[in-house]
Each structure stands twice: as structure tokens, then as C-alpha cells.
Nucleic acid binder design. Structure first.
Lengths: 156, 156
DNA sequence: TTTATTGACCATCTTTGACTATTATAGCGC
DNA sequence: GCGCTATAATAGTCAAAGATGGTCAATAAA
């Protein structure tokens, strides 16, 4: 049931558990998992995006590599500002979920709180014409983020 | 003679007798019972709804699944039923806040979680024509309540 | 009438492959 | 050795195919 993408994600996260960054060969990794090299890109794009708190750097050609960097946890006040900007006036569900996952990974929210964030911004909650959903999600999400960080700074 | 639906219901409940949640493949199960896959959805919708104390999560695509989660103890489950009914299809902000306060008083949510509930259902979050706000708030709030009552061990 | 069943069509997530882009290195002529 | 080019060694992109599950309305059964 654990499919390829999940296995590759796990593998990478295990490698990174003690490191702030790792370097790997895309083709080697693909061979290790017996899959197409572009599969690696898919995993990086869907599970190691900036919104997830990672940076990808790479280089082609001989001696090429893919480097995965865990972004340094910023000052929390700053993080809120950045997240609010990132959310902007409109945000899709995947991006919102990525941010929520990132907050969970950083232990800035509890698993229960993460569930609430997802519940309030998921497609089921927002029963609206598609065009309006992202805008509404942004508004709801921002309000929740502010509360998350208000708490972190000890307010009420 | 017991209906197909009843047989599927029993099958699932047997699987869950020892577990707080199970995961299954919709198509596999349908094949096992020799029925249309959508039959499974029918059974889930009519016998494993929130009213029945269950929660369904699923994922499409390769490695997809349907997860059935049993919600918390009956007493609290009843409270959820009542709350869901109370919320209905439309709820104003004051009423939603009163419910949140009640959950907080009962210690069914933490202060942080209460803040998230308010943040997601407050008038700031729901930037819509007044007529639609209450309806949307009901949808969002219900999704969040369900998460609050979800069995803590019930998966992601 | 109400409940159950099915099937056609839709939405989402994953995997692959063909084609493209970039970089290093080996050979070559000078 | 120097500069140029061809080739090999990487990685990236994107669209198509594959693998699931969801929805809804028509039909059948109770």
C-alpha cells in the first residue's frame, strides 16, 4: 500500500533526519527504487516544496546532484508575516495543506490543531463555486494562522 | 435475505471490531462482493456516517484508499450528534461562539483549539454577502467539530 | 414509497517516457 | 597549452497513461 512516492519521501526524510541538507543523484535514487528519474522530481515537487519548508537546488551534467535543504526555522514573528504574505488573497488547497504540514513538522501546531486547520480549509468545508473557494480559503486560513501565532507568543 | 449492503456493513464492522480504524481499497471490496464500486460509497454513506459515529477519509489515485475511523465514546458521540443538529445548515456567529465556549468549558477543546474554531467561523473570516455567511459558517464549523470529536488515535 | 444497485462520467494522484537543458570532459587542431 | 567541438553524463519539463476513489441520476427491488 505504501506506494513509490511515499517510500521515496520516507527514504529522503530518513536521510535528512540528522542533517540540514543532503545531496543525492537523481538517477541513482531512481535506480534504487526502480522507477523513472522524473519520479524523483514528482516527489520533490509534491513533498519537499518551499511551502513544506524545503529548498531544492540542483546541477546538471557530469557530477550533477540534487540538494535538498531544510529551511531554517525563522523567527516566529517573521514566519507569520511570511505566511500571511504567502497566503495572500487566494490559496489552493494543496498549498494550504503544505503549510499546515510544515507547521506540524515544526511543532508549531499540535496534530489536533493541524486537523482543524485542514477541516476549515478543505474542499468539503468550502461549498462554493470553484472560483471563489481559494479566496475564501485564504481569508479563513489567515485568521487561523494569526491565532496560531498569537498563541506562540503567549497572547490570549 | 440480507441485502448486499447489510453484508458489506457487517464485513466492515467485523474488520473494525478490534480497531479504531481500518483502510481498504474500494475496488477490491467491490470485487469481493461482486458489486459496483459505488455500492461501497452507498454503504459508507448510509451506515458509517458521522451520525453513526464514523468518519470516512479517502484518497484517490495510485495507492488510494478509503479509511474508516470510529469516533470517540458514545457519550461524546451523542454530544456531537446534538451539536451537528444544532448547527444545521446555517448558524450565526454568536451561536457558533457559544458552542465553542461550551466545548472549552467541558474541556473538549483546548484554549488554542477554541481560538481556531472562532477564527475560522468569525465574521472576518467569512467574507461573503451576509445572506451566505451563516450557511458557509455552518459547513466550516461542522467540519471542525467532526475533527474535534474524532478519535485521537484515528489516523492522520 | 423508500431503499438498494448499477453505470456513466468526473476528479485526483501517481508513474512513465519522450524530449529538452545544462555541465563536464575528452579529443582535436593549432 | 589553448580554444573549440563533440560526446557523455546529468537533471528538468510536460503531457499522456494508469490507478484509484466520488457523484449523481436512472433503474430495480423491497
Amino acid at each position: 500500500m505504501a506506494q513509490l512516492s511515499d517510500a521515496i519521501e520516507r527514504f529522503i526524510k530518513d536521510l535528512m533526519s540528522e542533517e540540514t541538507h543532503i545531496e543525492l543523484r537523481r538517477n541513482e535514487l531512481a535506480q534504487h527504487f526502480g522507477c523513472a528519474p522524473s519520479q524523483i522530481n514528482y516527489v520533490l515537487a509534491t513533498r519537499f516544496s518551499v511551502d513544506h519548508g524545503y529548498l531544492i537546488e540542483s546541477r546538471r551534467g557530469g557530477g550533477g546532484y540534487v540538494r535538498i535543504v531544510r529551511m531554517r526555522a525563522r523567527q516566529e514573528g517573521n514566519l507569520l508575516d511570511m505566511l500571511i504574505k504567502r497566503v495572500g488573497n487566494s490559496i489552493d488547497e494543496d498549498t494550504a495543506n503544505a503549510i499546515t504540514q510544515h507547521l506540524l513538522d515544526c511543532e508549531l501546531v499540535t496534530p489536533n490543531e493541524a486537523r482543524l486547520l485542514r477541516a476549515a480549509t478543505g474542499r468539503n468545508a468550502l461549498a462554493l463555486p470553484v472560483s471563489g473557494k481559494d479566496v475564501l480559503r485564504a481569508a479563513v486560513f489567515k485568521n487561523m494562522l494569526i491565532q496560531v501565532f498569537k498563541n506562540a507568543e503567549g497572547g490570549v
